[in-house]
Design a protein around this nucleic acid. Structure first.
Length: 275
DNA sequence: GCCCAGGCACATG
DNA sequence: CATGTGCATGGG
């Protein structure tokens, strides 16, 4: 995709391949907020502001190279959408979410975030994560705090996560911090997909759905299809209804193959927005 | 008050 | 292996 890096700036020229609203609001990420016409994004300890100009979007940041990778700017989503165009069911979802890109997010932050996401809604997920940031993170900008380090989170007891609003997920968080480290999560990259997936599912608070989100949004694996309540709802409307989410997942991965993750994200965003 | 949200752990058949 | 149940919390 066409983009230019200047001093503290990335200019993104393909508005049909990069739309900050679609990218950020499609449910893959929680570390952002909209401030007027500006999207503020704060993964880890990084920070960027995105604004729209006539012919390009402008990503203002001290660390352009981080955000090139984060926003997956070197991938060709025109090609991906072309390859997905043969699926009739994706016609409207792709038209609707045309500017979606799958982010490259930090494994540890993504893991914690999606453990909190279980049986929860996006607004409250963001609230809980922001509570944790405010309490343990460092100030990045006005009202914006970094995601805390593994060590800081490891020092918290279960009660702390309850006070942050995590509810019954507090014990999952407490336990998973004692089962894995950020380094170990990186190390798992060398495993084949199926082994990696089972390793993740063996962790506290991580089941099939959360594992697939981490595989897609963190490990950037295309051959996964996270099935949540929205996807199940969609599936049971357009296909012959199934109760078992594992069966739904298998059928959808069989259909969309290595592009499953992309198809999933267009479908999820479209389904959630039209309800 | 009930139902639901990017489900999971655990018990039971 | 498959199915059922309890679970914190805030919003509609």
């Amino acid at each position: 995709m066409k983009y230019e890096i200047e001093q503290n700036l990335i200019k993104v020229y393909c508005k049909d391949e990069f739309n900050p609203e679609h990218i950020l609001e499609c449910g893959q990420v929680f570390c952002f907020k909209k401030d007027g016409e500006v999207y503020k994004v704060f993964p880890g300890k990084e920070y960027a502001e995105i604004t729209e100009n006539e012919n390009y979007y402008e990503i203002k940041t001290k660390n352009p190279h981080f955000f090139v990778k984060f926003f997956d700017l070197d991938s060709d989503y025109t090609q991906i959408k072309y390859n997905l165009a043969k699926y009739k069911i994706l016609e409207k979802p792709i038209k609707f979410g045309y500017g979606i890109r799958i982010l490259n997010q930090d494994l540890f932050e993504t893991m914690i975030s999606f453990i909190i996401s279980a049986n929860n809604n996006i607004k409250r997920i963001k609230l809980i994560l922001n509570n944790i940031r405010k309490n343990l993170g460092e100030k990045v900008e006005d009202e914006i705090y970094s995601f805390p380090s593994f060590e800081k989170l490891l020092n918290c007891d279960e009660q702390f996560f309850k006070e942050m609003g995590a509810g019954y997920r507090a014990s999952y968080l407490y336990k998973v911090l004692r089962q894995i480290t950020p380094e170990k999560l990186e190390d798992l990259k060398k495993l084949p997909l199926d082994d990696l997936r089972s390793e993740l599912i063996s962790l506290s608070g991580i089941g099939p759905k959360v594992a697939d989100c981490l595989l897609l949004f963190g490990y950037h694996k295309g051959r996964v299809f996270p099935v949540d309540t929205w996807i199940a709802q969609m599936y049971n409307f357009y296909y012959s209804p199934l109760i078992n989410r594992e069966q739904i997942r298998k059928n959808l991965v069989d259909q969309f193959g290595d592009l499953s993750g992309f198809a999933q994200q267009y479908l999820f965003y479209y389904q959630r927005s039209s309800n």
